[in-house]
Write a protein that binds this DNA or RNA. Structure first.
Lengths: 143, 143
DNA sequence: CTAGGTGCAAAAGGTTTGCGGTTAA
DNA sequence: TTAACCGCAAACCTTTTGCACCTAG
């Protein structure tokens, strides 16, 4: 998978803006996340990345995922005690985790709901980030 | 800290209902969580529990916290990659994590908002649990 | 040129597991 | 009586770190 010109520029800009360098590895990891948006763990990203870049190390995968998160192009998704997953969907959304299939789906949220949630905060509190995670059964797995 | 009769009965019932035994250790861990509701980690619970029960082991603390969670009397709270925290507040609420002070506060939520969130799910999906975590700065830590 | 990034291997840190002995029901 | 639980220590697994080499800017 190659990064399109558009995404390469987006990435380079985002990295530069956050004082980080654009490297082959970071571009490749970004392309892996864009290529299959199924919320892979670092280990899964590592496996996919090695398919086209066999010399990349797991530590570098973690470093790249961290750099991409810091640049704002990638979000980390955490479920309970499970390994962190990574997601290149930047719209406001929650995650639904189906305990039956193990699958994770994006759930689109309106800005209204986000604002409504923020309005529940005590005065003076400011939220930089809101994580919303549903646990349950998805349509296919339901009885 | 001793468990009041009311809480002891609540605990015994909840454990029995989920096919688990009431043990001295589980009662003690429950009393620790009720005694100081500041969302301690397993390690902090361990330290507090040992004050009155020096022979308890960390593995047992984990076992008890797991048993209490399974019984429904305790909730696990996860923030990013940090250690799991435990909480005996059973009302519908979210958590606010202040990155400055490290403090975690409960944020009460109305049933309406919970219902509104559930209504965002695709048809057929059922959520058994919704985790909502805010990250930011609380009033005291704000600039 | 040089600060930042990479690859490797080892360490860290939270959580789980295996096992012999103990206990609630 | 006996399945479940406890305490201890070792194992596990994800993530981080230290260090020598490399590379983007």
């Amino acid at each position: 998978m190659q990064l399109t010109q558009e995404y390469r520029e987006k990435l380079d800009g985002a990295l530069r803006r956050t004082g980080q360098r654009a490297t082959r590895q970071r571009e490749h990891i970004f392309s892996v996340l864009l290529g299959k948006r199924d919320h892979p763990t670092a280990d899964e990203v590592y496996a996919r990345a090695r398919a086209e870049m066999p010399s990349i190390s797991l530590a570098t995968v973690y470093n790249c995922l961290e750099a991409l998160s810091a640049s704002g192009l990638v979000k980390q998704v955490n479920f309970e005690r499970e390994p962190t997953r990574y997601c290149a969907n930047l719209t406001a959304h929650a995650h639904f985790y189906c305990k039956e299939s193990g699958e994770i789906q994006d759930v689109e949220l309106s800005e209204q709901i986000i604002d409504l949630l923020k309005s529940c905060l005590p005065a003076g509190h400011t939220a930089h980030r809101i994580d919303i995670a549903f646990d349950g059964k998805c349509g296919e797995c339901d009885d």
